[in-house]
Structures are given as C-alpha cells and as structure tokens.
Design a protein around this nucleic acid. Structure first.
Lengths: 135, 135
DNA sequence: ATTTGTGCAAATCGTTTGCATCTGA
DNA sequence: TCAGATGCAAACGATTTGCACAAAT
C-alpha cells in the first residue's frame, strides 16, 4: 500500500508520518520520479481534496530535502524544483516552458573541474543543458 | 575615455546612449569582468551619486543581455547575476555567501551531452560547481 | 516633433515567518 | 502530556508593470 510505504519512508528518515507529510510523499513517489514545485503540489492537494497549507508544503519539501529524500534544483531564476531522483544526474531545462527533464545518471561526464578556491570544498557539480523549441 | 567607450559600446549594440545606460556600462566594464546584481549596481549608483532608479537598472540589464553585452547566470534560487564575461565559461558558486567565481574558459569539458529531446535544440550548457567553506 | 527612456509607486511572484492552535507518540 | 507539526495571514525580497514625465534624435 502506498500509504504504508510513505509512512515507512518517513519513519526511516526520522520524520513523523503526519497526514500531510504522508500525502505529499504519496504525491511525490507514487508514480516514479518527478520534478515538483511547491505550487504544483499545492494544486494537486487542492484537487485531491487533501487539506494542507502552502507553508506546510514548503516546510515539508525542505525537510524532505534535508533528510535526503529530495534534491533541490535551481534553474532559470525564480522557482525551486524538487527532484525525487536523488542519484547523481543532470538536467535539460526548457526555457520556453520552464520544464525540467532528467538526463540519466552516467551519461554526462564533466572533465577539468579545478580545485575549489582557498578554504573551500566542492559539494556538488550541476550541469544544466538549456534547450529551446527548434524553429 | 571610459565615457566614450561606453557610448560607443551602446551605439554599436543599437542602444541609445542615455546617461544612466552609460553610467551603468561604466560601472560594469570599467574594471575588468564582474558579476553584478541589480541591487549591487543600485547601491553603487547611490554611492557614486548617479541618479537612477532600480526599475531602470533592471530594464537596462535585460537590454544589455538581449543585445549580448551581458550574460545572465542563475544560481541558488533568488537573485540573478549578470556576468560581463560573455565567453564560454563556467562558475563556482559559494553557497555560504552567494558569491560567484569564474572558472576560466577551456578548463572544463562536458562530455556525453545527449541530443536535445524532440523538437528542441540546445542553446547553452552551464556547469555550476557548488562550494562551501571547508570545515 | 517623435520616439524612446526614466522614475515612481503599486503590483506580483515565490517563499518565509510569527504565532496561536492542533496532533501524534 | 507535550514536543513537534500545521494553518493562517502578514512579512519579505527580488523583480515587474503602468503610467505620467523627461530626454535623445
């Protein structure tokens, strides 16, 4: 049952399986990987009749990210996407409609990344391949 | 003279060399390459006694970008940086202080970028190397 | 004279916060 | 019970917009 899975997932991550967290986990993980924004999930909750506030969705997404259930992807500027695929991979970003598309893990290889400056360490290397509708 | 250079740069780009555009061009190009936000430039204008509004700075930055004088870099989420270095290069992004550092052109090589999906074309490949203060 | 740019203030968008009220272990 | 979670509404930061006024060709 997806509900049980969601509960387990949350417990395993050390988060209390509350109604709204379970509901959000279901929306996020029930149908394979996805890229979601807070607003998207809010809409889906409204439609599905799940009572939850936008603030809680933001809280929840950040918590999920903090415990490693999600990864955030920032592109284009404004909105923040949350990606249920937490494996090492990169993205196509469609500037026309602001949509993200996964580039499977292992396809892209980044060569020649220099050492981090001064007292800094590299935490992540993100590749964003911007695409546009071909004319 | 920097002022003349700015005027020329603007004329060459097909933009009327108004006071504020010239002033902004000077701030941007007078001292080598830089990464600037609208807010930064606004502050600098205030300090320098250059009368200009934030709205005009946003307009101007977008115009400069549209004619190829600047490139925008979006990282971390919120603010948009404008980079006077329009050559093909990538960036370090310091999550701690939100600062951008250029990675010189040619150092990084991205292998294995797949074809763009369906009727789309690739317009740009951006690599962002996130760094954090080493503990 | 005409076109184009500018400033201001209000509006928007995405996100965060404060705080009183619920809820799950 | 009671720490932790939620909802609401107000606060926020970055950016945009509408419109009257000013400046460039």
């Amino acid at each position: 049952m997806t509900d049980l899975t969601a509960q387990e997932r949350l417990r395993d991550a050390g988060l209390r399986p509350t109604r709204q967290r379970c509901a959000l986990a279901d929306l996020l993980y029930a149908h394979g990987h996805r890229h979601a924004t807070a607003e998207m999930l809010y809409e889906e909750c409204l439609v599905a009749g799940i009572p939850v506030s936008l603030a809680t969705i933001y809280n929840t997404l950040h918590q999920f990210r903090d415990v490693g259930l999600l990864r955030d992807v920032s592109v284009g500027g404004t909105k923040t996407y949350f990606d249920t695929n937490i494996s090492d991979h990169h993205h196509f970003y469609n500037e026309s409609d602001g949509r993200l598309i996964d580039i499977p893990d292992g396809l892209i290889d980044v060569l020649g990344v220099p050492e981090a400056p001064d007292g800094k360490m590299i935490t992540r290397v993100d590749v964003v391949v911007q695409v546009r509708e071909k004319k």
